[in-house]
Amino acid sequence: MIEIEGVSFAHRGTPVLRDVTVSLPKGGLTALIGPNGAGKSTLLSLVARLQPLQSGRIAVDGMPVDRTPGRLLARSLTIMRQDTGPVGRLTVRELVGFGRFPHSRGRQTAEDHRHIDASLERFDLGDLAARGLDTLSGGQRQRAFVAMAFCQGTDYLLLDEPLNNLDPMYGRQMMRHLRDVVDGGQRTVVIVLHDINYAAAYADRILAMKDGRILADGTPAEVLTPDRLEALFGYRMEVREFEGRVHVLHHGP
């Protein structure tokens, strides 16, 4: 369980998060949606201790993120950011292998190799394993980074806009992979999404954020109503139900 209690955060005096309190139980795929600058990425980065907490409290499975040793947390929680940074001369397999670092500290065992193989296979990277990351397309590279996060074997996977730069086919593929990860094991995925319909189609729960606050919290059908969406994004969108799933027509005139 991820418990977030009374968390506020300001960036150079500008408030980004205002007294956010929410808890995410183990299991399931939770999507964070909301307009740009709502504080979704900041919330995720605070949970993953990428930035220091300013006020409030965050605990992952009872471990406070600001006081637990990094090595320990790295076995239960991982994050993938949208800007994946420089990659240098790494092969896909080497990158995915880094996911085992919290367990093996660099000296990979046979078990680590099993985990690496399993991650490569799960994310359809088998054929690309020996390729250099700098030779891959954006979508393939994104998948390699998610595979690394998966390979870390943590209960909680935080993903900050993993669908960035992905075309519809790769986007759908990524979401299906993540859905499998949640359904297959007791993994918990928390994901920042810009496309509301991906959240509608794949998430178990949606947290809608605006101006550093959580505006709505519930299943896709509960959160994605025309009124809530208007409060969130500032204009009216139609919502249709099709084969048991909600669809938001946000491109309409």
Partner: peptide, 21 residues
């Protein structure tokens, strides 16, 4: 530190996520 340095070359976010302080 050679393995730890490998991880650090991924950048601060990825390194923290992999357990480096």
């Amino acid at each position: 530190w050679r393995h730890r340095l490998d991880v650090m070359s991924l950048g601060p976010d990825a390194a923290v996520s992999l357990g480096i302080d």
